[in-house]
Amino acid sequence: MEISVTLKVYLSGEIHTDWRERTIALCKAADLDIKFSSAVTNHEASDAAGDCLGEEHNGFWRDHKSAKVNAIRTKTLIEQCDLAVIRFGEQYKQWNAAFDAGYCAAINKPYITLHSEALIHPLKEVDGSAQAWATTPEQIVEILMYLLSDQLS
């Protein structure tokens, strides 16, 4: 028997692999009552988020405007979620993901980091404030199953 509550989970971080889709599919397969939200995963759309504020010929200012518009979305979704999962990939440095983790820590929002063992040292402070560290989407789903289980009482 499962607890009757919808858990709101924000998925942050790396956008170059299918970890989000795998996590969501595994949760659906386990019939978990979870509402997922996410950072913008379409790079072009993210880069163009500030274009509504007027044409910008300088790349720095275009990025600056778009980052601020994207921050509205990110901040709102993090504040509304019950838990964040923050993925750090191998290929790129995800400064935005580190910022999301710091914001979660600052507002006392629980978060789980998802990354390989190769990133243990560079993410030691980020992991130090996390409630858990996982290496696979399957581990994330196991944690979510545990959180939604009523077998604990």
Rank of each mutant, 00 (worst) to 15 (best):
I3L: 10
S4E: 15
S116P: 04
A98R: 04
R73A: 08
E142G: 01
F99P: 00
K8E: 13
G13A: 14
I140K: 04
A29D: 15
N58T: 10
I120D: 14
N108K: 08
L83W: 09
H64V: 05
D31K: 10
A30M: 08
V126K: 03
D150C: 12
L119M: 12
T74I: 14
T76N: 06
S46F: 06
H64Q: 11
I112K: 00
G13R: 02
E55P: 01
I86S: 04
E79Q: 14
K28W: 07
R73F: 03
A105C: 07
I107P: 00
K35G: 07
A130S: 13
L144K: 02
D18V: 06
N96T: 13
D150G: 10
V69R: 00
A67S: 15
T74P: 00
P110S: 10
K109F: 04
A84S: 15
E90T: 13
L147E: 11
K124T: 12
L53T: 10
S149N: 11
W19T: 07
I120N: 08
A101N: 05
T135E: 14
E142D: 11
N108I: 02
L144Q: 04
Y103R: 00
Y92M: 10
A118Y: 04
E79Y: 07
D18Y: 07
L148T: 11
V9I: 12
H115K: 03
Q151K: 05
L11G: 03
A132P: 00
Y111L: 02
V69Q: 02
A101D: 06
I86D: 05
Q91P: 02
A118E: 13
T17E: 09
T6L: 04
T41G: 09
S149E: 11
S12G: 15
F88N: 05
A105E: 11
H43W: 09
E44Y: 08
K28T: 10
